[in-house]
Design a protein around this nucleic acid. Structure first.
Length: 188
DNA sequence: TTCCCGATTTACT
DNA sequence: GTAAATCGGGAAA
């Protein structure tokens, strides 16, 4: 079952990040269906969070998507060459998001392998936010698109997760005291 | 318009 | 462990 809009706006962002673990991310791009179990996420909590693009209520051409009502995709380019995929959460004008950092491939594995320019499947083929997007075929074209639509969406397929771990977020040393917040969720 | 740097990955040493 | 790849966003000039 596709996650309803309420999933993205009726619970706090940390719970959303945690609850996304074990859900299944789908993309249908140019009639190519791929999916994977979400295994790693990070919460970015808006204007107070120094690691968040919308910190200090910064609203620009890039970050304006985070200010939309939850349930849309926020995709941006990092280091000039990687697409990072986020789920926008909360009501309009509360600019929170959850970064999807890793998946375990499920459907369309041969397409995922091809997009990753590899010859075979291996455990970490979609571990890391940039390579996750590459494997799923996510580009800026998906920016601001609905997560309840036909191109990109998330389902609850009742997959059981043994234990969810929690840690500091990756790659945000500049965020001072917020760099230490345990807002990353993952399975082993 | 200039300048700095990033929610990363990969290939080396 | 270190460095290169690569470029748009955002702040400052």
């Amino acid at each position: 079952m596709k996650l309803p809009l309420g999933f993205y706006i009726d619970q706090n962002t940390l719970d959303i990040a945690k609850n996304l673990i074990g859900k299944v991310l789908y993309s249908n791009i140019n009639n190519t269906l791929t999916s994977g179990i979400i295994t790693e996420t990070e919460a970015y909590c808006g204007i107070e969070d120094k690691a968040c693009h919308s910190y200090g209520n910064r609203k620009t051409q890039r970050t304006k998507v985070m200010f939309l009502k939850g349930g849309v995709a926020y995709v941006y380019i990092c280091y000039g060459l990687h697409y990072l995929f986020n789920v926008v959460t909360q009501k309009e004008n509360i600019p929170h998001a959850v970064l999807i950092r890793a998946i375990k491939p499920l459907d369309g594995i041969e397409h995922i392998i091809k997009r990753r320019k590899k010859n075979e499947l291996y455990p970490d083929i979609c571990k890391g936010p940039g390579v996750m997007s590459q494997g799923m075929g996510i580009t800026k074209q998906l920016n601001a698109q609905s997560l309840i639509g036909k191109t990109i969406w998330i389902e609850d397929n009742n997959i059981k997760i043994s234990k969810i771990f929690q840690s500091e977020r990756i790659g945000i040393d500049y965020a001072k005291e917020y760099a230490k917040k345990p807002w990353r969720f993952f399975v082993s």
